[in-house]
Design a protein around this nucleic acid. Sequence first.
DNA 1: GTTCGGTGTATGGTATACCACATAATGGGA
DNA 2: TCCCATTATGTGGTATACCATACACCGAAC
Lengths: 238, 238
Amino acid sequence: MSISDKLSPVAVNFTLKDHTYDVLRKAIIEMNIYQPGTDLRLDERTLAENLAISRTPIREALARLAQDGLVEIIPRKGVFVNRKSRDEILEMVVIWAALESMAARLATENASDDDLRALRKFAMKKSINAASAEIEEYSDANIKFHQYIFDLSGCKALGKMADGLFAHMHAVRRRAMGEGDRVTKSVGDHMEIIDALDARDADLASRLVREHTMRLHDHIHKTWTRLENLSAAKTETI
Amino acid sequence: MSISDKLSPVAVNFTLKDHTYDVLRKAIIEMNIYQPGTDLRLDERTLAENLAISRTPIREALARLAQDGLVEIIPRKGVFVNRKSRDEILEMVVIWAALESMAARLATENASDDDLRALRKFAMKKSINAASAEIEEYSDANIKFHQYIFDLSGCKALGKMADGLFAHMHAVRRRAMGEGDRVTKSVGDHMEIIDALDARDADLASRLVREHTMRLHDHIHKTWTRLENLSAAKTETI
DNA sequence: GTTCGGTGTATGGTATACCACATAATGGGA
DNA sequence: TCCCATTATGTGGTATACCATACACCGAAC
């Protein structure tokens, strides 16, 4: 075996703008943008300095983030992380419900018995975390459960689209998870969903998934009023 | 009235990159990219020359189009209009079905009686075009009908997301419309959907819309095999 | 003290020069 | 004649300089 065989084509097609996009996206998703006082401003020149690159790739990355709706670029004003209003969050949850219920419907046709067994096993395991009240860990597992359903649908684009929403929903789900007895209810819902998938009942699985997500919708609708005020401070554009 | 009152803030915040984005997007949507022999290549420098601007705003516009999935940027190779494969189109139709069926469900709650009367009136009027076999005109009206449902849902984000798909679906819907007796079937479907909305039957409306769109899905699945070959010529990335 | 205008500074927008890589064209040697 | 190395050219990627606007600050006039 020659040395060249060991040189896998990793990092071929690597570009700074793509890397910058990934870095910024991850940073935005992981930062708690709903915390009051958080600096939502992104300065091109500061970023360029911190990342030790020029502004050009940063600007292209920002343009893509703006397309995702993660940031808002206001000419000659600045680039700001897009803090979603409660209503915008609610609409995203609706879309999520639409996509995932379709995914569940498709999964009743496309998932193998083995797939469903693996899903059930995963759900059982994660319910342990729920019992021990490790919210953080359970929250991650919970998100993974939903992604699982998208995977089983066999429709990659569905999962991809949900991923886009996920960027916005990440902080939301975490926050909502800790409120009330949503965790225990959630576990029950998931089991019912798996049962419906097992039974290959497309209508039922679809309905259960939709209702499950719409309960998150209703929860946010009822309990989150503070967000509205926070986002009201967003700079107005003409 | 002073002169200043006449100076509306139009074109404030106008940027070349946004304009370029709009222009390119429109051009891509309207060109028949599935026609064999069509040049799918976009050259930054040529575009810059034609639009009489520098490459910078063009590059940012292209970055956004790539995010939309409309073009593919291959480093040091070129920028290419993203000709979707049949399977990719099928997945988009699935997503469309998911979104619109949710829109119909919401519309049963949020649309007023007046809204539905207007929708019915619109559908009746457009069926005339269908009868006179003005395919082009009917196709546009057909698309408008579906957008109407999104509007009535009251969930703006749903419509916006569908708009994104619309960019890819435009050529597809047009082509499919002319095949078989899909036009007359389509008119019947639409009337049934309106009836369900009138009856405020969320489950029925949702189901009818989904089945209607999934019929397009099945139609494409059965009859479109040629596309697969066309897109096979797409340049491979590592 | 208040107001209005000028000026400085920071920001994103744009133009342009150059770079690295991919590919095609070329030409010389086997 | 064919093959392979070399060179030329074209592409997107990147860095940088400069521009236009928004905004804050400050000082002079009232």
